[in-house]
């Protein structure tokens, strides 16, 4: 098992990563990444560029595990190919961030829509790619700490991604109130900064201002139409 440079091209379509589908636009550049412990990726379409992927059977998912994030870094318009080519975000990191986000943004009605979490995970991955090495290290370290220590706060073991959503919420709440709050807050801050830029989320919280595009453009277009 190991890396294999595929060097393929691909034009839109879908990438399946262990049951997860990510729809790509024709301009997207893609890299499959990670330690592959949990990810089996198959490229179905041709057209974009796949830098590398691993071949081998996927590890079966545990029933208690939440859906994992795809091991992908996607960058629109191919403008950041250099970053994509030189930075690898592990699927474990993405799975942790998704599990954290699913708990953080859950409402009394349940988890946020999967589409929104997909978007958030992709944006978070893009953020990690474009952040400097140190910023990336701080965030991934914080995710690691939260992933392993938060479950201990509710007498569970071993990692956050394996807890059901309600237990995850309880674990993170306890950790946020503990002396280890800094790790939770670091991840929470950056997930929030991205999540609340989603137009649907902004509508839900009543934010219709000019500070965040594309909402601002939308608001202006509406005003102009009137």
């Amino acid at each position: 098992m190991g890396w294999r440079q595929a060097g393929r091209t691909f034009e839109g379509g879908r990438v399946d990563g262990d049951g997860l589908d990510v729809t790509l636009s024709p301009d997207d550049a893609v890299r499959l990444a990670g330690p592959w412990r949990r990810t089996h990726a198959t490229v179905r379409a041709d057209g974009g560029r796949v830098a590398a992927h691993r071949h081998g059977p996927p590890r079966p998912r545990l029933a208690s595990e939440p859906e994992r994030a795809p091991a992908l870094v996607i960058s629109s318009g191919g403008k950041h190919d250099a970053a994509v080519a030189s930075v690898v975000i592990s699927p474990t990191v993405l799975a942790r961030s998704r599990a954290f986000a699913e708990a953080l943004f859950s409402t009394a009605d349940g988890a946020p829509p999967a589409e929104r979490l997909d978007w958030l995970t992709r944006e978070f991955a893009d953020y990690l790619v474009k952040a400097g090495g140190r910023a990336r290290f701080i965030l991934t370290l914080a995710l690691f700490v939260v992933s392993w220590l938060a479950p201990l706060m509710v007498d569970e073991w071993p990692t956050l991604v394996r807890l059901d959503r309600r237990t995850r919420i309880r674990a993170l709440e306890r950790m946020e109130a503990s002396f280890l709050s800094a790790a939770v807050l670091a991840v929470k801050a950056f997930l929030c900064v991205i999540y609340y830029e989603h137009p649907d989320v902004q509508r839900e919280v009543g934010y219709v201002g000019h500070a965040t595009f594309p909402m601002a453009l939308e608001a202006r277009a509406t005003e102009a139409a009137r």
Binding site: Y195, E197, G206
Partner: peptide
């Protein structure tokens, strides 16, 4: 910005989301 405002709101899950709705 809304995300930074929300990040300052304590809580996880429904508690956090309800507080975030206070940003207006």
């Amino acid at each position: 910005p809304p995300g930074v405002l929300a990040a300052t709101m304590p809580g996880i899950g429904p508690e956090h989301v309800e507080r975030a709705k206070l940003m207006r």
